[in-house]
Design a protein around this nucleic acid. Structure first.
Lengths: 363, 363
DNA sequence: CTGAAAGCGCTTACAG
DNA sequence: CTGAAAGCGCTTACAG
C-alpha cells in the first residue's frame, strides 16, 4: 500500500521467519549478550534472507539515541568543511550513524532558534562544530545547556565540557617559518589572520618563536594585519614590499592570503620564488593548482572528523549503560552526566613546494 | 531522567496545557482543516508557552514521510557541493526539513549497499543527486526501483521519472565562446572535458556553434582532449601552443583546466591576457582569486539546490493525499505513482574578467 | 537464555 | 468541529 518504500520487512517479519520472538531478534541485532550462538545464527540467516534493515526512526523513538550526528558550520571555507564531511560520513557509515548538516545562516533567522529547532526535531546524539562556529560563546552555551555532546574542530582554545580535536597551530606555524629560515631568509614578513579567529594569534606566535629560536629579531614592522581574505593578503603584501627594507619571504597566516601575496607580487613585477618566497597555511585545494605551487601546512581534516565521530559515538553508546545516580544530593561534586571525551591533537603536515627557495642575496 | 534532552515537552503535555485532546493539537500543528480559530489560537499559545517542537522520529514513524532529504555526491568539486548544500539547507530549514549527506565512496564498500542502507534506515522523502552521481545508470536504476523521488542536478541528460535541474550548457558554452570572438579572436582553442561526464560534449558543442555562427571554421586541430583536471589543462595548453599556428585564445571546458592553461602559459613565457586570452567554466572560487581573474560561466548552484528541494517537498506532500488506485488492472497505461516533477532550466551567468582581452594581432 | 507486555511520541482511520 | 482508540517499528524493564 505504501508507494514510497514498498514492503520493507519489519522486525516482526524477521521474528516470524526465524520462529523466535521479536525480542530475540532485537537482541541479536544489537549485539546484546545472552543469546546462544545457534539462535544468533538462525536470526541472522532470516535477516539476510529478508534483507532486513531496522527503521532508524522507530529505534530512535524507542531508545534515547537517534544514530544521527550533526555537522554545524558557516559558509566559509568550502574545502575544509568538505574534508570534515568526508571523514565524518565515512566513519558514520562504518558505525551505523548518519550525518545531518546544518549551515548556520548568520544573516537570516536567529541562529539559536535554528539550532534549537534542529536539536528538538532530530535529537542528534552529538554535534561536530567546524571553526569558527566552535569559537562562538553563545552557541557553546546553548549547546551546553541542551546537554548535547559536542566536538570542536580546531577551536581557538580547548574548552572543558566539550571534545576538542585540533593540531598544534603554534608548532605548525613555527615549523613552516623555520622552513623559510632554513632556506636562508633573514627578513621575513608575516600577514596576520583575522584576529577574531583564535588561529590567527597562534600562528603569529609560532612565527615569533621561530624567529627568536634562530636569533632573528621579531620586527613589528614586518607583521601586518589581515583577515584571512584574498584582498587582505594583497594589501599586506603591498605594505610589506613598500617597506624601506622589504622582506625576502612572506608567511601568510592562511593560503587565501598567500594567494593574494602571489597576485600582489606579480603586480610589483616580482617573480615568485626567485624574487620573493611565499608560504601559507591550510593546504587549500588552490595551493597546488597554481604556479608556483604554495608551500603550506596541511591539517588532517578527514582524520579530525573521524576522530570527532569516534569520540561522539563511543560517548553516546557508553552513556545509556551508565545508570544515572538517583541520589537526592550526590556526595562530592556535581553530577557527572557522562564520561568526558578525551581531547585529541593530531599531527600536521608540512608541504614544501616551489613557492619557497633561497633568497637572491642574504637579507 | 533522560540526561540528554531533559524534559522535552510532548504533544500530550501541550494537550493537557491547552485542555484539549492530543488529536486537536496534532491538527493545529499540521495545519489541518476543521479547527475553529479560537481553538487554534489556544493550542498555539500552549505550544509557545511550553516551547514545544514535535519529535521528528515519532512523526516519521506514524506517517509515511520522514521530513528528511538526502544529498548524494562524490568527493569531487568541493565548491559545487557546498553551494548545493547551502541552497538545500536554507530551503529545508524554511520548510521544516533536514538534510542528510552521503558522500559515496567508490573505493570502499559496494556503493549500492551504502545507498540501500541509507534508504531503509532513514526513509528520506527525496534525494538530490550532484553530478556525476546523477549520471550513473546503476545508481539511477537502484533509486528508481526503490521508488524514492530524486532530483538530478546538472545531469548529462534529463531523465524521465526523475526531476531535473540544470542550466543550458550548450548555450552557456556558446555564449562564453562568443565573448572571445567578440574581442576579435579568430583562432580559438578548446580543451575538452572528461568525456565520461555529459557536460563535456555539451560545452564542446556550444563552442562549435559559436564558431559556425560567426563564420569561423571548427578546426579539429584546435580541439584537444582533457579530463577536467588541472594537469590535463596544462597538457592541453602545451599542445595548443605547440601548433604551427597557435591560437590567441583558449576556452577550457572548466575552470580547473583553465587554471592549468594559465600555469602552462606562464611556463611558455606568455603573459595572460596580453599574449593569450583564457576562459573557463564553473566559476570555481579560485577563478576570482588569481591574477588575472578568470572569465567564466557561473552556474546558479544555490538556486539549483533550492529548486530541487522545492520539487521534492511539493511532491512528497502531494503524494500521500493522492489515494492509490486499488484496481487490479488499472485501465490505460501504467499506474501513475505520483505527479511527475517539472524540470527546471535555470539561467547561467557570464562573468567577464581580466583573463580575456583583444589579441595583439588579429589571428 | 528466551519471551509477553508496555511504551517511546506521534498520526491515521473511525466515531460522534 | 472534536475526541478515544489503535498502530507505526522498535526497545526497555520485567518475568520466567
Amino acid at each position: 500500500m505504501s508507494p514510497r518504500h514498498p514492503a520493507a520487512p519489519t522486525i516482526t517479519d524477521v521474528a516470524r521467519h526465524a520462529q523466535v520472538s521479536m525480542k530475540t531478534v532485537s537482541r541479536v541485532l544489537n549485539d546484546e549478550p545472552n543469546v546462544v550462538p545457534a539462535m544468533r545464527e538462525r536470526v541472522m540467516a532470516s535477516v539476510k534472507a529478508l534483507d532486513y534493515r531496522p527503521n532508524l526512526h522507530a529505534r530512535s523513538l524507542a531508545r534515547a539515541r537517534s544514530s544521527l550526528l550533526g555537522l554545524l558550520y558557516y559558509a566559509s571555507s568550502a574545502a575544509f568543511v568538505m574534508g570534515l564531511q568526508q571523514g565524518a560520513t565515512a566513519r558514520c557509515r562504518a558505525l551505523g550513524y548518519h550525518l545531518v548538516v546544518e549551515q548556520l545562516d548568520d544573516s537570516g533567522e536567529h541562529v539559536p532558534d535554528q539550532l534549537r529547532h534542529m536539536l528538538t526535531a532530530l535529537r542528534p546524539d552529538g554535534l561536530i562544530l567546524a571553526p569558527p562556529v566552535c569559537d562562538d560563546p553563545d552557541i557553546l552555551r546553548l549547546l551546553s545547556d541542551a546537554r548535547v555532546p559536542c566536538v570542536l574542530i580546531s577551536p581557538g582554545m580547548a574548552r572543558p565540557g566539550f571534545g576538542n580535536v585540533s593540531i598544534d597551530d603554534v608548532a605548525a606555524a613555527r615549523a613552516i617559518t623555520e622552513v623559510l629560515i632554513g632556506h636562508g631568509h633573514r627578513r621575513i614578513g608575516h600577514i596576520h589572520g583575522n584576529p577574531r579567529q583564535a588561529a590567527a594569534p597562534h600562528r603569529r606566535e609560532g612565527f615569533r618563536q621561530a624567529l627568536l629560536a634562530h636569533g632573528l629579531a621579531d620586527d613589528p614592522a614586518l607583521v601586518v594585519p589581515g583577515d584571512f581574505s584574498f584582498p587582505s593578503g594583497m594589501a599586506g603584501c603591498h605594505a610589506l614590499l613598500s617597506l624601506p627594507e622589504p622582506p625576502s619571504a612572506i608567511f601568510a597566516a592562511n593560503d587565501e592570503m598567500a594567494l593574494g601575496v602571489l597576485a600582489a607580487a606579480q603586480q610589483h613585477g616580482l617573480q615568485v620564488p626567485r624574487d620573493l618566497s611565499v608560504a601559507g597555511f591550510d593546504d587549500a585545494p588552490l595551493a597546488s593548482l597554481i604556479w608556483p605551487p604554495l608551500s603550506t601546512v596541511r591539517q588532517p581534516v578527514n582524520e579530525m572528523a573521524e576522530a570527532a565521530v569516534d569520540m561522539l559515538v563511543s560517548r553516546s553508546s557508553a552513556s545509556p549503560a551508565e545508570p544515572a545516580p538517583a541520589m537526592a544530593q550526590p556526595a562530592g561534586g556535581p553530577v557527572a552526566p557522562a564520561p568526558a571525551m578525551t581531547d585529541r591533537v593530531l599531527p600536521y603536515g608540512l608541504l614544501l613546494r616551489a613557492s619557497v627557495q633561497a633568497p637572491k642575496a642574504a637579507g
